[in-house]
């Protein structure tokens, strides 16, 4: 069942990419359908990582909201790092902090780690068990709970709903 769900989601993703890449023409669509279908079938026995994605309306709503939350974080943190680079005294307080996550699925952890890395100022250096080790350009909270609240909580709130 999990493998089936994984294949269906993979098929949809491949099809969307194909449509974006080519044009909306019958020939192109048929070629894309066949290729996506073949890939989905041939990878049926691989580990069903994508099966952790929830397909409920609520999860869909949260993923759209997540795009905006992420965009806001991206812009704010980019401006913050830009300000630091331009300040002559270079105000830095770098270090690697440990945070933990409640997310269980592999894809959930992947999206969380990628989101953390994509926002400037934080960079995931290692993922081990349920812990993420994050290089932080300006450490505000030194203990695990505080750092988790500061870095992870804003993303996790949404990702918990999207990935089971």
């Amino acid at each position: 069942m999990k493998n089936f769900k994984h294949s269906i989601i993979l098929f949809i993703i491949l099809m969307v990419i194909w449509i974006l890449l080519t044009s909306w023409e019958t020939q192109e669509l048929i070629a894309g359908l066949i290729t996506s279908f073949l890939i989905a079938i041939l990878t049926y026995r691989l580990e069903p990582v994508l099966a952790a994605i929830n397909l409920t309306p609520k999860a869909l709503l949260y993923s759209i909201a997540y795009i905006f939350v992420f965009a806001k974080e991206l812009i704010l943190s980019n401006l913050d790092v830009a300000r630091r680079v331009l300040t002559p005294s270079l105000p830095l307080k770098p270090g690697i902090v440990k945070v933990n996550t409640k997310l269980k699925s592999k894809i959930g952890k992947l999206v969380l780690a990628n989101s953390i890395t994509l926002t400037p100022g934080t960079l995931t250096a290692e993922v081990k068990n349920g812990n993420l080790y994050i290089h932080w350009i300006d450490i505000k909270e030194e203990d695990v709970a505080g750092a988790t609240q500061e870095i992870v909580a804003k993303f996790e709130k949404y990702l918990e709903v999207i990935f089971g």
Binding site: N78, V85, P94, G121, L123
Partner: peptide, 15 residues
């Protein structure tokens, strides 16, 4: 401007 490899990565890969 950044002092070490990790901080450089922050500026170099994220912007």
């Amino acid at each position: 401007r950044m002092p070490d490899v990790y901080n450089r990565m922050q500026a170099g890969t994220k912007s």
